[in-house]
Every structure is written in C-alpha cells, then in structure tokens.
Amino acid sequence: MKRDTDRESPLVITDLKKAFRTGFFKTRKINAVQGLSFSLEKGEIFGLLGPNGAGKTTTLKMVTGLIFPDAGSVSVFGKPASTVSSRRKMGFLPENPWFYDYLTAREFLTMAAGIFSIDRKVAKERIETLLNQLGIAHAADLPMRKYSKGMLQRAGLAQALINDPDLVIMDEPLSGLDPIGRRELREIILALKKRGKTVLFSSHILSDVEEICDRVAIVARGKVREIGTIDSLLNMGISGAELEVKGDEEAILTLAGELGLSTTRSMTGYRVGLPSNTRIQEILGRFMEAGIQILELKRHRHSLESIFVERSEKAQEEA
C-alpha cells in the first residue's frame, strides 16, 4: 500500500469540465471549467493563478469531491476524487472557511480528528501543536462565531492539517491575513514542503506565489493557459536588457548610433537599451573597447503580473 502511494502522483487532473446551469429555468449555462489539466509532483508547492471567475474554486471543489465533473477525471494518489478514501491523505482549506457558531476551535478540531479516526491522545497533542503554531491557542475555547476573519482562516488551516496530510489544498489561503499572518503562512507552507508534503493553492497575490511556488499554472476561463516553474515563465521571451554606462558623452552616443541602440539620459550617465539577448556579448565588448565605463547590466524580465494579465486578457479575447 505504502509503496503504491509513494509512486502515485498526489494529483492528476485530466481534461476536467464543469458547467453550471443558472436562472429560474436552468437555461443559462456557465462553463466554469472547460478542459483543464495538470498534475502535481510529490513534494512541490504549486500555485493556481487566475483572475476572478477563472474556475479555480470550481476545480478545487471537484478535486475534493464537493462537486462532480461533467467530464474528465481527477485522481488523488491514484484514487478517483469521488471515493471517500481519496480524502484520507488530503487536507483542504476552503475559500473563506465558515464554522459552526457554537463550537470552539478545540471542539471543531477534535471532531475533525474524530472523522479521521485519529487516536485520542495523538489528536490532543496535534491539536495543541496546531493551535500554537497558528497563533489561535488563546482563543481555542471561544465559540468560533466570535472569531475575526484572520482567526477563521487560521482555524481553517488548522483543520486542514489535522490529519498530517500528504497533499494540502488551499483556496485563497492568504486572503484575510495581515502581512504578519501571510509571512507565517508562507513559512508554514515551506515547512510542509520540507517535510515532503505537496501543496496546492490558489491565489491572486502574485508576490507570495512568486516567492514560494515551485511551479504555477495560470488559469483563465476554465483552462490552464500557462504552466511551468516561476523561472521558466518569467524568462519566457525576455524582452531585452538595459545597460547603464558612464563616460564621454559623444563617444557613447556615436557608438550607440552605430550599433542602432536607443539611449536615454540617466542620473549618472546614459541608459542604453539592448534589443535582444544574442548581441549582448558583442555590444559589451564594443563599449569596453571605447573606454566607456559600464555601471550595470540589467535584464528585463516579464513580471508574473504582466504574464498573468496578458494571458487572462488573451483568454478573454478568444472567448
């Protein structure tokens, strides 16, 4: 059994489709997810990026068995998402989690542990650890209707980790958290990775994604539009570079003109735009030969944000 799950990918999503019917006569059809595929590798942190309404939550609901796909398949450690046992090694934090008004966090976590049939003593210890780790120990015996948004988010994460899951799935885990909370969450996610866990989360907050994700998928209009490591996405079609130089003004301008490069004045000297990667060596050589001081060479990179916006808009146009 154990070896089986070691080999199995934590999550394989194949050509997933889901449409919602709305309106009084269920006539309006919304294609929330339309042929979405990706899979996770063991031990990676994977970010699902996409604009509002892209289908991220819908996808995660199909992965966790809350809703059923119209077509395609989801398998969690080799088991179909429709099976109860597929949720054994999974932890899920829903978008803006809601709890029972009259239960305390400790009671809720005890129930969560009960659902996993975790041994009482083990559960008790784990609950204490999680409450402390997530900074809600002081409110552990308070009814959860008295919790703030951030506290609910933390309690939500605690319940997602109650079974020490191998696959942690989080829908917008950073929403509702203050900067300190976000940093703490990033650390928790990285610590999970260090322990060999696989993490999948959706987000809008690109800087956080950029910082901790091994790979990301950009989802728009229910499809994966771009997928890869952060680096591969960012380096995709580097638009060029920029050279900061200092020296004799006329020499700089003539050389730039000769090489067909644009120049702008800067604080310290001139900024020279380099159009492509290929000629950088040659251009650098020419400037050095001319005795011009090179202050800095900067590569222009796509920001994750620009890719995000571009891909989302493109998907919009295609539709």
């Binding site: 966790t64 068995g65 809350l66 109860v84 046992s85 949720r87 054994r88 999974m90 899920f92 829903p94 989690p97 809601w98 709890f99 029972y100 809720f108 969560a112 659902i115 996993f116 939500g156 319940q159 079974n163």
Partner: peptide, 14 residues
C-alpha cells in the same frame, strides 16, 4: 448554506 459542509465532506466520510 453556511458552507460548513465543505469542512466535513472533504474529509474521509461518506
């Protein structure tokens, strides 16, 4: 309605 079910049925319970 309150979505508390998301926290329960995403665990191993039929």
């Amino acid at each position: 309605d309150r979505k508390t079910i998301y926290l329960i049925l995403t665990k191993p319970v039929g």
